[in-house]
Write a protein that binds this DNA or RNA. Structure first.
Length: 239
DNA sequence: GCAAAGATTTGCT
DNA sequence: GCAAATCTTTGCC
């Protein structure tokens, strides 16, 4: 790939190739962008330049598009929380759910149109030890408030399940609400997207209703706007 | 101002 | 299989 854009020369992706995820794809129609995001890489650079770089292959996303989508945070119009969804595509939108879990979204659509893609699951590609450590740290912090007669046990979850859910993606990649606004299409961003390796086949794509949006009612709760790679061992739910 | 529910995960029954 | 944990945002008084 010889794309230049605003990136500037000399920068290279995690594998030494130019694989920055194209903003144009995210700026287009959100449902198409959702399917294009499958197979792409989520990359997290170590803080302070030390430690492992974490890389995950995106295998499950959900689309939330437009003011009319009653399942979307934008359904009430522009508010302080969802404002970033109305902004430029390619930017991170991270929110807190149930008072404890963070969810990473990629803003899509033209500026002014509120839409985003929830990253629900990724397959660990690199930095597995750091992912596991980040997850474990959060888990132990949560157990802090429990009775002392409970000794924390080692987390035996398989590598493939480390980021098999929206809250787990954020936890294993060290993502929280302070990441909101990061430009995921910027090669210099510590949290960003890259395209799949050129020699990697495009993944199959399956569609299904979104999860946990019954409150939206018909027809929004049944819209097949969850897209995933069939057969992946890292899906949030077995499929 | 207060009550309720939420784009979830975990651990116990 | 179910309920708890936990806090921000939203809905209504």
């Amino acid at each position: 790939v010889t794309e230049e854009g605003s990136r500037g020369p000399g920068l290279r992706s995690a594998t030494g190739e130019d694989r920055w995820f194209p903003r144009d794809t995210l700026a287009g129609e959100t449902i198409a962008a959702a399917q294009s995001l499958l197979g792409a890489r989520l990359v997290r650079d170590p803080a302070g330049g030390a430690g492992e770089r974490r890389v995950g292959r995106i295998v499950e996303v959900e689309a939330y598009a437009g003011l009319e989508d009653r399942a979307s945070h934008a359904r009430m119009g522009l508010t302080p929380r969802n404002g970033i969804m109305f902004g430029a595509p390619g930017v991170a939108y991270v929110y807190l759910v149930y008072g404890m879990h963070h969810c990473l979204n990629v803003v899509t659509g033209a500026a002014g149109y509120p839409a985003a893609l929830l990253v629900r699951a990724v397959e660990p590609v690199a930095g597995v030890a750091t992912m596991r450590a980040a997850r474990e740290a959060l888990r132990l912090a949560r157990r802090r408030s429990l009775p002392e007669d409970r000794q924390p046990v080692p987390n035996l979850v398989p590598d493939a399940r480390l980021a098999a859910g929206p809250g787990l993606v954020a936890a294993s990649f060290g993502v929280n609400v302070t990441c909101t606004g990061l430009d995921l299409c910027d090669a210099a961003s510590p949290l960003r997207l890259e395209t799949a390796p050129a020699d990697e086949p495009r993944p199959d794509v399956a569609a299904a209703p979104r999860i946990g949006v019954q409150y939206a009612g018909q027809p929004w709760s049944d819209m097949p706007w969850r897209f995933y790679v069939p057969g992946s061992a890292s899906l949030s739910r077995r499929a």
